[in-house]
Each structure stands twice: as C-alpha cells, then as structure tokens.
Amino acid sequence: MLSIISPLMRLIEIPMLALQRLLGINRLAWVFLLPNLVLFGLFAFLPVILNFFYATSGSDNVMLADRPYVGARNFVTLMDCSSYLDPNTCREDKFWRAVWNTSWFVTLQVGFMVGFSLLTAIILNRDIRARGFFRSVFFFPVLLSPVVVALIWKWILQREGVMNAFLDWTGIGGYNWLVDAQWAFTWSVFISVWAHMGFYTLILLAGLQAIPRDVYEAATMDRASPWRTFRRITLPLLSPTMLVVLVLALIKGVQTFDEIYAFTGGGPGTATTFIIQYIYEEGFAGAPRLFGLAAAASLMVAIVLLILTLIQLWVNRRNADG
C-alpha cells in the first residue's frame, strides 16, 4: 500500500510547491482546506439549499428544472389531518403513523437504553475482576452492522427458532413474533437497545471513572448510606455525562432506519415504519417517486435534529467550561 501512496505524495508535492511560491505560506492553508470544503459544500450545504426547492415543488421528476413550483402544498398534504393523534384521519396517514411510531420508539428505546447503560456502567465501575473482558462483551454488538444484527435476531425469533424452542421447553409456548404488530415493535426496541447500549455504557463508565475517589471516601467517613451516596454524589456528578448520552441517543434514535428495516421491513403493516423509512420509501422505493413529500418530511426531521444538535453543542460547551 505504501509503495503506491509514497510516489503519489511526491507527485502532489510538485504542484503544491508551485502554489506555495505563488500564494505564500499562510494562504496555502486554503489549498489544504480546499478538498474538504468542496466536499462539505457539494454534499452537505448545497443539499440543504436544494432540499427547500424539492420540498416546494411537485411531480416525480428528479431534475429541478422540470419540477413545477407548488408552494407549501407538500407540507399541506403532510399536515392534512382532522386529528393529529389519529393517523387514520390524515391524508398522508403513513407519514403520521411513522411520526407516532418514531416518537414511541425513541421514548422507549432511549429510556431503556440509558437505564440499562447506567446500570451496566455502575456495575462495571465496581471493583470487579476481568472488568476489561466484561466491558468489551457489552461493547461488542456496537460494531456489528445493522443488517447483521437484524439477521441474527430474525434467526433467533423466527417461528421455528431457538427462542420458541426455549419457550416451548419452559411450557410457556412459542409465538410467531414478527407477524404480531405489538411484538414486532417490542422486539425492535429490544434489538436496538441490544445493539447500541454498549456505546453509551462506555461513555457513562468514563464519566463514572472521572468522579474523584476522595469524594466517596469523604462520604464513607460521614457514614452516608450507599443510596444517599448515589443520590447526592454519583448522580449529580454524573449528570453532565448523562445529558450528553441522552441527547446523543435522541439524535441517533430519531434517525433509526437500518436495523429495523432489515429486521421487519417496517411491518407487519406499518407497525415498525419509522420516519426515515417513510422518507426512503416515498423518495426512492415506491413509484411514483414523490421527491417533494420526501424532502418536506426530511425538512421536518432536520428541524428536530437541528434543535437536538444545538442542545448537544451547548451541553458539550458547558461541560468543557465546567
């Protein structure tokens, strides 16, 4: 590999040296920045601007010049509901199902994930043997690809899978999990927590280990009960980390797509269809390709994520200062 790269780098040096003579050292910085900025511009900022054009235009044509301007019609279509609480009364009922599914999913997933990550981190922070081993065990699923996670659990939960065999053996009896809307949703929350909790455990564990030991020693001197120590010392001192974890989990949760799409395909029916899947299906999977609706829905997700990211940056800054 190096034998290809080294000559390449020497080759780049020739024009770079010429530019250095031409521009001077400090302005050369822009040359170093250029590739990155072009990529950011082309694949991040330009799309954001174009997204507004898509959201306010109709037809299934991807070329912007061929798309008639329709004003806010896409948004009106998405928001056309008698009652927002009941997707059946909405014109674009699939969108609202996705919105509600995502809301429920994020609430449950983030709740369970932060809870279990905290529990696991606290246990790993105790004076236990083989901590490194246990830590990597909980972390391992984080590295698995979403499709692999989905297939592993699909194989376990299929009708004649090992889960049903176990339940038969205990006498409870098996079940065809993924054809039942509520169970499919429950298992979706489960596999998502299973796959990602190691990541948050790692962050929380780092937060716990940053709490100075002498604070605990002082508490022991004062004969504080363990519960009191936890409430008065651990929780307050961990709260900046908890906030980071919470916001990060929310940002990722809203964008959940891969593993659930491979796991249930969004079904049965629309029971596990989330908002990103809605965007994907309107824009890319279905016919006609409703780019306008997809872009309008993207814009709404973007606003939610923007707010969350701003909170995240604010939290990071506050933690860095404090």
């Binding site: 900025l37 991040a44 601007i49 912007l64 964008q255 994520l305 923007l306 940056l313």
Partner: peptide, 25 residues
C-alpha cells in the same frame, strides 16, 4: 471555516437524501 465544519455536524445524511441523490446523479 471552523464554524462551517461545526455546521456540517447539523446536516446528517438522512435529512438531505433527495438532493444528495440529485447531486450524485
């Protein structure tokens, strides 16, 4: 430039799929 880099943090791929598709095309 630093602010611009922070700005891209707020633009995950998932929310610009349609225009990204056009540009790639």
């Amino acid at each position: 430039v630093l602010l611009m880099v922070v700005g891209t943090l707020m633009i995950p791929q998932t929310v610009v799929l349609v225009p990204l598709f056009l540009i790639t095309f």
